Amino acid sequence: MLSNASTADRLDPDHPLIDSDPNCPADPLRTDLRTILCCPRCHGAVEPASARWVCREVTCLYATVGFPVTQGQPVLVDFETSIFDRASYEAGRGSVLPRDDSGRGLRTMLRRAVLGHNTEAARMCGTLLHHLRRQASRPRVLVLGGGAIGSGITALYEDPSIEVVGTDVYASVNTQLVADGHALPFQDGVFDAVIVQAVLEHVLEPQAVVNEIHRVLHPEGLVYADTPFMQQVHEAAFDFTRFTRSGHRWLFRRFDEIESGTVGGAGTALLWSMRYYLRAFGVRNPVATICVAPFFGLRWLERFARAAPNADAASGHYFLGRRSDRQSVQPKDMVTYYDRQTQARA
Rank of each mutant, 00 (worst) to 15 (best):
L204I: 14
F255P: 03
L217D: 06
T175Y: 15
Y170M: 09
A237W: 12
L222V: 06
Q187N: 12
M230W: 10
E158W: 07
H218M: 09
A193N: 09
E220D: 13
V216L: 09
N211Y: 03
R215P: 06
V164D: 14
L184P: 14
T227R: 03
H234Q: 09
Q231P: 02
D226C: 07
P160L: 01
G189L: 03
Y170P: 03
F243K: 05
D159I: 01
A208L: 11
F229R: 01
L204H: 13
Q232S: 12
A171W: 10
G181W: 09
E212R: 04
R253W: 06
A237K: 08
V203Q: 10
R253P: 02
H218D: 05
D159M: 06
G166E: 07
H202I: 00
P185D: 07
V165R: 10
R215G: 02
V173T: 13
F238P: 00
N174A: 14
A179N: 05
V165E: 12
F252Q: 04
G181E: 05
E259L: 06
F238N: 08
T167Y: 13
E163L: 02
T227H: 12
F238Q: 11
D192R: 00
V233K: 12
I162R: 04
Q232V: 01
A183Q: 14
G181A: 07
E235Y: 13
F186Q: 10
W250F: 06
V190Q: 13
E235R: 07
Y224C: 01
V173W: 06
F252R: 05
T241W: 15
P219E: 10
H214K: 04
V203I: 06
I213W: 07
T175K: 14
P185S: 06
F243N: 05
E220K: 01
N174M: 07
V223I: 08
L200G: 15
T244Y: 09
A193I: 03
Y224A: 02
V210C: 15
L222W: 06
